[in-house]
């Protein structure tokens, strides 16, 4: 080691030491700082001094003097700080109050609607479903035509649509992902498609112009309505509890035939009727049905060879009833006092 390097190291230590000593907030920290600076085992001054022997003989005297003056300055500063801390420290030895709170850390939270989506995905992943995604700005053909919506028909009135022009819409459901997936991948197909969908519904306590939906799709040879019923009932028992009763009602979606809606027995009144279930004893959970042959044909599949089933559900509805949220708009506001209720 050269003399300039030795001196530079000392200079740096001298420059750095006062701030470090000043930063010691209690006696414990002071001890750590002292050990780091001038400790015999691993102090920086000790490390530098170890290099003294490697210096040329004629340089050692100057180096030693410089080192000593740095050492004196550091020790003075340490003593001064020790006095300050000792004065401030509590006198009694048993004053360390272990009941005081831990140092805080903000907790994050997953949005309640995402929590529902997570749970749904988890259950269907056990059954071999994978995740497909599609665009929110869609061609009208994927959103309507391919899904067997008749042109200019009252069925279209069920989907109050936000239009982008040029035959483009904000998708009104996640079902376009069915057609995209079937065009891209050959059967067997077992997918879930979570995503946001849009309707021209004004914000009110139970409606929103955009909301999450989860689509499910199974297409293979020999897939039947009984499979739909068994799988969705299994889902309901996993999601709502092993004794959950389900009921399937006839319904209508242009892209499924037969179409059904699945209810689960109202958990509040156990089916006897209450205000939560509008006296029906049942809570609507999802719409489902056998994929309409016209949809398979739109995706270029042989509808005689392949059959399939599909479902769609709105996780916001489930989140609202699960958490007792009175107004759907709260889910969109991003009020931190609401979000904080879901920390984990």
């Amino acid at each position: 080691m050269s003399l300039p390097a030795f001196i530079a190291a000392l200079d740096l230590l001298a420059a750095d030491a006062p701030a470090r000593i000043g930063a010691a907030v209690d006696l414990e920290a002071w001890t750590e700082v002292r050990n780091a600076l001038v400790g015999r085992q691993s102090g920086r001054l000790t490390d530098i001094m170890a290099g003294l022997g490697a210096l040329a003989k004629e340089d050692r005297r100057e180096a030693g003097q410089r080192a000593n003056s740095v050492k004196v300055a550091i020790e003075e500063a340490l003593a001064h700080r020790h006095a300050e801390l000792a004065a401030a420290a509590p006198k009694s030895g048993s004053s360390f109050d272990l009941s005081m709170p831990a140092r805080g850390r903000w907790k994050g939270a997953v949005h309640p609607v995402s929590l529902v989506i997570d749970e749904v995905i988890e259950i269907f992943r056990e059954l071999g479903f994978t995740i497909a995604l599609g665009p929110e700005a869609e061609h009208a053909w994927y959103n309507f035509g391919a899904l067997n919506f008749p042109d200019d028909h009252p069925a279209m009135d069920l989907h109050d649509t936000l239009y982008l022009g040029d035959g483009q819409v904000l998708r009104t459901h996640t079902s376009p992902v069915q057609v995209r997936t079937l065009q891209q991948y050959p059967p067997p197909v077992r997918v879930l498609a979570p995503g946001n969908v849009y309707r021209r519904d004004f914000f009110d306590p139970s409606h929103a112009p955009m909301f999450a939906q989860i689509e499910g799709l199974v297409v293979d040879e020999g897939v039947s309505f009984a499979d739909l019923k068994a799988t969705l009932s299994h889902f309901a028992r996993r999601f709502f509890g092993s004794t959950t009763q389900t009921r399937f009602r006839p319904s209508y979606f242009p892209f499924t035939e037969p179409s059904a809606e699945m209810d689960v027995q109202c958990g509040v009144c156990s089916g006897s009727g209450c205000s939560v279930c509008k006296q029906s004893g049942w809570i609507e959970i999802l719409g489902a049905g056998m994929v309409h042959p016209a949809v398979l044909e739109a995706a270029g599949l042989d509808s005689e060879r392949f059959t399939g089933w599909a479902f769609g559900m709105g996780p916001a509805r489930t989140a609202i009833s699960r958490h007792g949220i009175p107004d759907i708009r709260i889910l969109y506001d991003a009020d931190v006092r609401f979000l904080d209720q879901f920390t984990r």
């Binding site: 059954l127 071999g128 479903f129 994978t130 995740i131 497909a132 995604l133 997936t181 891209q184 991948y185 050959p186 059967p187 067997p188 197909v189 077992r190 997918v191 199974v218 293979d220 309505f225 009984a226 499979d227 019923k229 068994a230 799988t231 009932s233 299994h234 009921r247 399937f248 009602r249 006839p250 059904a260």
Partner: peptide, 20 residues
């Protein structure tokens, strides 16, 4: 009646679609 259809999970073939 939809309620008269069986409610039995059957074995399935895995799908071809990778996760997005």
């Amino acid at each position: 009646g939809f309620d008269r259809l069986p409610d039995v999970l059957k074995g399935v073939r895995p799908g071809t679609v990778p996760d997005h």
